[in-house]
Write a protein that binds this DNA or RNA. Structure first.
Lengths: 217, 217
DNA sequence: TAGATTGTTAATCGATTAACAATC
DNA sequence: TAGATTGTTAATCGATTAACAATC
């Protein structure tokens, strides 16, 4: 029921690749042109064999004793993730969270370009958000179809998340990045990626409780 | 190297518990007082046995043919996650993302209360953010110690994440929830939970590419 | 009672780690 | 050359799923 592989790449691998990419991009910026698994693994506190296996999914081969050629590695990871082409996206919910995502330039380096924000609040519609217009939600379907938008980002309050998701599906959106603290349901064929902050917080809270308890002994 | 269990609870279980909690809280609000694993599993599209095993970690026992008593289940999950007590937290970075987190009331139901925001930008310091003051970062260490704050939330740009983390560690913070798109390093004994949006986006991008490719055939 | 659901043990599956030959 | 690192296969580990008796 849960997809464990995408395109033959295990999901855990897929989730680690951006960390590798970030690190080797930083290395590239310092002028280095080769890197070993050992080096990456140390920085990210992972097992070197795990890194090697992950990198193998990109098809890149390294040189024994030397490592991997950084420019080729960057290109291969970007290509595997589809980040070598920037895809346009629409965002719904022009609140603080929406504004934060609109204002983050780094997404361009992750293949994502948020081209417009939508809202129903008349105080927000018509304003500019980080050089992008805030449009009324009524215009979503028409514009999404005309501009061939495939990615929708949900940053509305919990109670409106499902209706926004429904609108996105009707408008031909193929992938939804959901930041609302509610699971949204969509027909099969449409992808949903839920950003579950509560899952992250659960790990944090429980770890903290465990260390505080240990500290008192 | 990676912790797979916290307090004897596997991390994957820990990450699913908030979803269960959200669902059964919603059921409780409709007046229901029992729920079966089958019912939870269907809603969240998980295997019923998996849900049963996860719920067993809370220590709650169900009744065959009936299910679990909802109020006891809610209490047990909240207790396990430490969400039955609200913990105060400080946030650093009063930008849009910081404002979004400050304004989200739902954290109170997740055991988290952000009591103040800090920044170095003179245009932000002194202002109010969702009824909480924005203070100068210089005051972080002193106030954290005096108020016995254990949780720090980082919502500053990438390039300042590590220095903020260092300050938090020096100030006695025991757990850092890091929203900056950069891994921060801390001494052992301090917990870091990184919210890696790029990991989530990697899964979304790759799935989308796979379905678009499939659609063209 | 009959049947749905729990609790529990065993089987499977997949991800991570260990071992080691090949090689630059 | 010697030693570090790759690529690859095998072993381990842990998480999920299947099977099934107990029970309300």
């Amino acid at each position: 029921m849960i997809t464990t592989e995408v395109n033959g790449i295990p999901v855990p691998t897929l989730r680690r690749l951006p960390s590798y990419l970030q690190f080797i991009r930083a290395l590239a910026a310092t002028g280095r042109d080769v890197v070993s698994c050992t080096h990456i693994a140390e920085h990210l506190r992972l097992d070197a064999t795990l890194v090697r296996k992950d990198l193998q999914t990109t098809g890149i081969v390294g040189k024994p004793k030397v490592g991997y050629y950084i420019p080729a590695l960057i290109e291969a990871i970007e290509h595997l993730l589809g980040w070598d082409n920037v895809t346009d996206a629409f965002l719904v919910g022009a609140g603080n969270l929406g504004a934060a995502l609109m204002g983050y330039d780094g997404f361009r380096e992750h293949g994502l370009n948020i081209v417009a924000a939508f809202d129903v609040d008349p105080r927000k519609v018509g304003r500019m958000l980080h050089d992008k217009q805030v449009l009324h939600l009524d215009r979503f379907a028409d514009l999404a179809a005309r501009m061939h938008i495939h990615i929708g980002i949900i940053t509305v309050p919990e109670q409106h998340a499902q209706e926004v998701a429904d609108l996105m599906v009707l408008s031909g959106i193929k992938a939804i990045w959901n930041f609302a603290p509610a699971d949204v349901h969509v027909p099969s064929g449409v992808i949903v990626e839920n950003v579950r902050l509560s899952a992250s917080l659960a790990v944090l809270s429980t770890r903290l409780a465990a260390t505080l308890r240990a500290g008192q002994n």
